[in-house]
Design a binder for these strands. Structure first.
Lengths: 203, 203
DNA sequence: CTATTTTGTGTACGACGTAAGCTTACAACG
DNA sequence: CGTTGTAAGCTTACGTCGTACACAAAATAG
């Protein structure tokens, strides 16, 4: 339906692209937050009327979903084929977390709009391979990966959802960041160690 | 500021209460979802004009925050003083998850609006005691508890955020429910086992 | 030049959150 | 009893949102 065949040539030339729209959406998100990401603002930023966006995406929610997919792609890592799965899993967690903290206003979005499932599997293929190489059944591998992913997302939600004025940050940001870093590491270590014990640590 | 002193007697008698409002909000949430929870609808359901609600709560967000606190209180458990902490932790996770799945439309809300911190600590006091009884430092206990809480929330987000038509549910709901149950158990077991190994399982 | 096709625009509608000022229904006091 | 004070609820109104619909503009194909 949308963006069907780019049958080039005919018709008024497009000043808008799905990609340009998504990029602008993420910029607004990062700069001003989710509430500021309105169709009108997005249009203004692209030098276009709000309604023009609807030629490329069916509604606001589709803009958000596209932004989610784009952001998730930022979290991919490439893994040396020699990396054992527990380390690969931890590296994925770090990378995912880094992406989330790099776009704090987008975290509630990622939490609410699950990434497209096929895209997700594609992006995680390299990680899945590390499990397969250790002879771990695909289902068990997916469980471990998803459990970690879910932990990382939940943790990021807690971190960005707590206005930095509140409790645990006695002083400035540095202390709060350290607090969350340590917490993150501890939970991640526990979970990975638990799976390691259950699945055998490879080869 | 709001609901200051219920200096009874004077003035027009109140047909509205904070509690009645919060209860109605949760009913709407459960029945029709977050988007349906508007001030006008909430007013209608209580037989009152939308603006009347503002006598009791400063704005819509306060309604949501109050609903969050109320829901979280549903998840408390009381623990036998003999329960070892790993079991207590797992029971908390189950209880928390049960509450979340009992209010699927509220899950994104819980994800976005962190529960009031003092209320949270109060509700978790019993659980914290189980760690203290095993001689585990408070900070380590909090890390473990919060890690589990964050995992549970993330998992619930994944479960309720995936429209049941999509991938893993080959048949109906039962299969999907079983899928998520098994995943949940596996991740939880891994994390609790990991903390057990790290903290010692309590003399 | 005309027809066709695609993209962007203008206008309009209904719903939202909520600010401001008004009305209503009580208790207290004379 | 009437008057007054006060808290609760109501009416109206404003600005903003997403988006349906009909139209204008800008290119190519014949």
């Amino acid at each position: 339906m949308n963006e069907p065949a780019p049958r080039r040539g005919r018709g008024r030339p497009a000043v808008l692209t799905r990609e340009r729209i998504v990029a602008a959406a993420i910029e607004i998100l990062d700069a001003e937050g989710l509430d500021a990401l309105t169709m009108r603002r997005l249009g203004t930023r692209l030098g276009v009327a709000a309604m023009s966006l609807y030629r490329h995406l069916p509604n606001r929610d589709a803009v958000l979903a596209a932004a989610v997919d784009h952001l998730f792609a930022e979290a991919v890592i490439d893994l040396d084929a020699a990396t054992p799965w527990p380390e690969a899993l931890a590296r994925f967690a770090d990378s995912y977390r880094r992406m989330l903290l790099g776009h704090p206003h987008a975290v509630p979005l990622l939490a609410t709009h699950p990434v497209d499932i096929d895209l997700g599997l594609e992006l995680l293929a390299g990680l899945l391979d590390r499990f397969e190489a250790a002879g771990i059944p695909r289902q068990a591998a997916l469980t471990a990966i998803q459990s970690v992913a879910v932990y990382v997302l939940g943790h990021a939600l807690a971190q960005v959802g707590t206005p930095p004025g509140t409790r645990p940050a006695a002083e400035g940001d540095a202390a709060a960041v350290a607090f969350y870093d340590q917490w993150f590491e501890a939970g991640l270590r526990a979970m990975v160690a638990g799976f390691e014990r259950e699945l055998g640590q490879g080869h």
